[in-house]
């Protein structure tokens, strides 16, 4: 028992103060939001792979989550429209207590692991009242990762139907948004929004936990643009 207390005091409280304080700095090589200035055309955040050997120049900005699929297409004409808070009625219900259910629909496991990280002390989702629950009946929304493989399609739909109204759907990762690197395969879909309506799109491969956290908090109105 004493050993536990000793270790606890040595380890301290590790939760970052974001969003009240600035998020910790990300390393220089981190590939965040692409920069459009000086380039023609547009970049679709849901379809790129965030790999270093492409023509894209990346910034250090981790906030990339949006409420609409179209908002993921960056272009020079307008500023990126980050995720907006839910409407007033939903905010009243979910603002302080949001229970989510995760469905892995063919992902490679990177998105799942970085989602799990949000429950650890550093990011500590529970302080916002957000928690991952065991049953879809207990949940208010699903977080889907992966390109929705053919074999997972029915399980995903059943889980979606088991969630009581009102409910949310969050697409996490490039594969969930557009099928990602697997979109050519007949075994994968072209994006979650072709199957069920989506309320929040979080791009990345995998999205950095700060991107996910930022997206969730914007959805709950705890961060405004």
């Amino acid at each position: 028992m004493l050993k536990i207390l000793k270790t606890r005091f040595k380890q301290g409280c590790r939760t970052i103060l974001f969003p009240k304080a600035k998020a910790p700095d990300l390393p220089q090589r981190y590939r965040g939001r692409p920069i459009i200035a000086g380039q023609n055309g547009s970049i679709d955040l849901g379809k790129i792979f965030f790999n270093p050997d492409s023509d894209i120049v990346y910034s250090n900005d981790y906030s990339m989550a949006t409420s609409k699929r179209e908002d993921l297409v960056l272009s020079q004409e307008r500023e990126m429209a980050l995720a907006r808070a839910l409407n007033e009625r939903m905010l009243k219900i979910f603002g302080r207590s949001l229970k989510l259910r995760q469905v892995s629909a063919g992902g490679c496991n990177a998105c799942e692991l970085d989602l799990n990280v949000l429950n650890t002390p550093v990011f500590d989702l529970s302080r916002f009242g957000i928690q991952f629950v065991a049953s879809p009946r207990h949940a208010d929304g699903i977080v889907v990762t992966g390109p929705v493989s053919r074999n997972m399609r029915e399980a995903l739909l059943k889980t979606y139907e088991a969630i009581p109204e009102p409910k949310l759907v969050i697409a996490l990762g490039g594969c969930a948004i557009s099928g990602g690197i697997f979109s050519d395969s007949p075994q994968a879909s072209h994006g979650l929004d072709t199957i069920i309506p989506v309320d929040l799109f979080i791009p990345g491969c995998p999205p950095h936990p700060l991107t996910t956290l930022d997206g969730l908090l914007r959805l709950l109105g705890r961060i405004s643009s």
Partner: peptide, 12 residues
């Protein structure tokens, strides 16, 4: 507290 995190509010 024991896990070293802030945790849910008391009124959660």
């Amino acid at each position: 507290f024991f896990a070293g995190r802030i945790g849910p509010p008391l009124l959660q």
